[in-house]
Design a protein around this nucleic acid. Sequence first.
DNA 1: AAATGCGACAACCGCATTATC
DNA 2: CGATAATGCGGTTGTCGCATT
Length: 362
Amino acid sequence: MGRAPCCDKASVKKGPWSPEEDAKLKAYIEENGTGGNWIALPQKIGLKRCGKSCRLRWLNYLRPNIKHGDFTEEEEHIICSLYISIGSRWSIIAAQLPGRTDNDIKNYWNTKLKKKLLGKRAPSRRARANQDHCGLAGGAAAAMCGGVGTAAAAAAPHQALSSSALERIQLHMRLQGLYNSAFGCTTTTSNGGGVGVAPPQWPKLEALLPSRPLPAVQPTDAVVATVQHPHHLVVGGHTLATAAATTSEAFQAAEHLDPAAATGSNYMPGVAGVEMTSSSSMAGGGGFVAGYGLHDELYDFLFKCESIGGAQGGIIPSSLPELQCPDGSAIIGADEKFSTWTSSSCDYGSGGAGDYVLGYDQ
DNA sequence: AAATGCGACAACCGCATTATC
DNA sequence: CGATAATGCGGTTGTCGCATT
């Protein structure tokens, strides 16, 4: 069973591209375009490469106007904001950063930005391999052994969050701490970088709003919220602050976050500028969406983690108010809304190599 | 100097979605 | 309208080079 291979792997070269291969591919595409058929392209030009490999090489490396390395602070802001808002939709994030590829951003996030923001070292792959011997499954192993969400994972070993969801929770919390720190709601570290013993090195709190207009990509709700209301994450009613405080109780052992830091404000620093309340209409009688697009697993974790929630049946109280869009409409399934938008309005990523809207392709 | 650890980046893999027949 | 092919995407792995022991 299984999917048929896209090419004859026996006759296809793998591994790093040689300059000769690059030159062949680049010259051909610059002269003829991709021809709308990546699979046939390598045969046309005599490359022993898979069509997918050619496409990837072109998009990530050979395409004109590609930038590598040296991410600016502004770019970091955008990446962080969007990651928190929409998660690991790297292609969407890349669409907001002209010249950057999703692969580049993904690598940058995984190797640098994540550690910079979370203030800890991610376990190396070797370490992760060792952790696998601990008998911990996927996210739980990463979370626990990496020091992420230890308490939560320990309390709910069968409902561990993915690293992405955990990271986004952590980022929210860190930023909450930073905000409170900046506004005197709690003790501050000497560098003003946050609370706790492992202050994050989050860049300046201001300037999350890009100084230039975003590219000609119709932004997602999340992007709109992020860039239009950079300091306006309102958490209403039973606010996210409440949720954050409660969540932090689960995480503080590993995070060394001061839970009090998360209780003092209804605002979060300008990351996900989404007016937020929570939803009482969600299944199970409660709802919590930390920004647009937090995964269902996050919801499941927060509301079904009985071992933490005790009598309340979950980390987050069940009577949270409704999460709303800036325009007042309820956000029940932010991801769903996002998907709807992307399928109906979003230009990029749906039509092959020629449809990039960043102006790379001729 | 050799071994080991680790970070960074390029490339691969496989699933999901879209287009075409 | 279903089957198949092509493409897009995100997660994962491989490899290289530098730092540390």
